[in-house]
Design a protein around this nucleic acid. Structure first.
Lengths: 220, 220
DNA sequence: CGAAAGGTTGACACGTGTCAAAGTGGGTGG
DNA sequence: CCACCCACTTTGACACGTGTCAACCTTTCG
């Protein structure tokens, strides 16, 4: 929720949330083809969203954590065009989109907030396109790790330690590379003393080195 | 503009457009860092949008033609995060975003329309991610050509002939491949009798074959 | 405890990138 | 109006990063 509302406003804004829903690890919050009715605000847990082709290839389009909104893909056709899968037990707030639109008309601040959320997603996807189109395996992984810790840190977690909620294959799908290549890049970073890796536990030992890999020119 | 408005409504909706602007080939409509004030509806002409890293790598994030909206990237931070370049002389309608938001509150149909436009862009970028992450050079080019002719056909142009407005390098940037690879893929399609290419002129001789390349499984 | 899923590592293959040279077409100035 | 020039495109030869396939290891969970 955005800032700038008084308590009376906040009470009305509570109406956006119809109810909450728990999603167990591995379960889908919504899937491709489902009728779109609501946006979902993640309260706890971790999701991936992915699209797939008829011939079975899957592309992870994003990883979402507490405080982020999923379901925006469904607005345009009234049907979802991707799957949202919980990577750990999760709880979401269900926000019927009709409520969102009604209250947006009443509260310009909310309207602006909704627009920003959608715009942010567009900008994020732009940078993923840059990553997929122009970067090499190690740059992609460095960018991915830096993005993850930055978002976790904004939520009060460590900026140097994290536990991955997704498999090597899912990371690879997101980054446009095979799981073996992901694993090799982790090992390389580890050999170079940039990170410490043990399965899904990752500790960043030298963030500057990671940033340098991600963006070779901008280093100092 | 969406359907469903009466003439009185339409008159008010005209207020969205502040003015028009001509953009000459090669000129930028807006660029990374510019303050965001307006969305732009393309009346005529053809644009590319692209992001770039500090070390000079450029990623084309989309090609836009008449009737499409650009500038959505600027909403989230009040500053544009990409460049919009005219690939041919163009004219756009300038729609100050404040007007869009004001009238959206008044006209639910417009509000819904704006939301759909943003959602459509998110879904489009999802499919570009699939393309960049999972497909091979020839599949990417086939998908690209099919998408282009489909959009041109929706605007009354031929569904088998087109003149590309962008260079091989720009196509390559969009599709995550080098210009030589783009050129080779064109030549291969040409050798196989699937298309006829002469520089920027392309005629599709066998659309089914292209679809087959794009999606090997879904053929029949 | 055993099986299944996920992760690591090695050897090799292959698609695309890189570099270079030549061809093509369009725009501009003399 | 022609000729030149420059940007763009095509094509070839070769290099290299990542994919593929396989074996083995680790961890989790029934």
């Amino acid at each position: 929720m955005p800032a700038g509302f008084n308590t009376a406003d906040m009470k009305k804004l509570d109406e956006i949330v119809a109810t909450r829903r728990r999603v167990k690890q591995g379960d889908m919050l919504f899937s491709n083809g489902d009728v779109f009715t609501s946006l979902y605000a993640i309260r706890t847990g971790f999701f991936k969203t992915c699209v797939s082709t008829e011939d079975g290839r899957e592309q992870v389009t994003g990883f979402q954590m507490a405080g982020e909104i999923i379901g925006l893909d469904g607005i345009v056709t009234d049907h979802h065009s991707c799957n949202a899968v919980a990577l750990e037990d999760a709880e979401v707030c269900i926000m019927p989109f009709a409520n969102v639109e009604d209250l947006s008309r009443e509260f310009p601040l909310l309207q602006r907030h909704v627009h920003k959320i959608m715009s942010r997603e567009i900008v994020r996807e732009n940078s993923v396109m840059m990553l997929l189109g122009n970067m090499r395996a190690e740059e992609r992984l460095a960018a991915f790790l830096l993005n993850l810790v930055q978002r976790l840190h904004a939520r009060g977690f460590s900026q140097s330690e994290l536990t991955l909620r997704m498999s090597r294959e899912e990371i690879g799908s997101y980054l446009g590379m095979k799981l073996e290549t992901v694993s090799r890049a982790f090992s390389k970073f580890s050999d170079e003393g940039i990170i410490e890796v043990k399965q899904r536990y990752v500790r960043i030992l030298n963030a500057d080195a990671l940033k340098k890999i991600f963006n070779p020119e901008t280093c100092n």
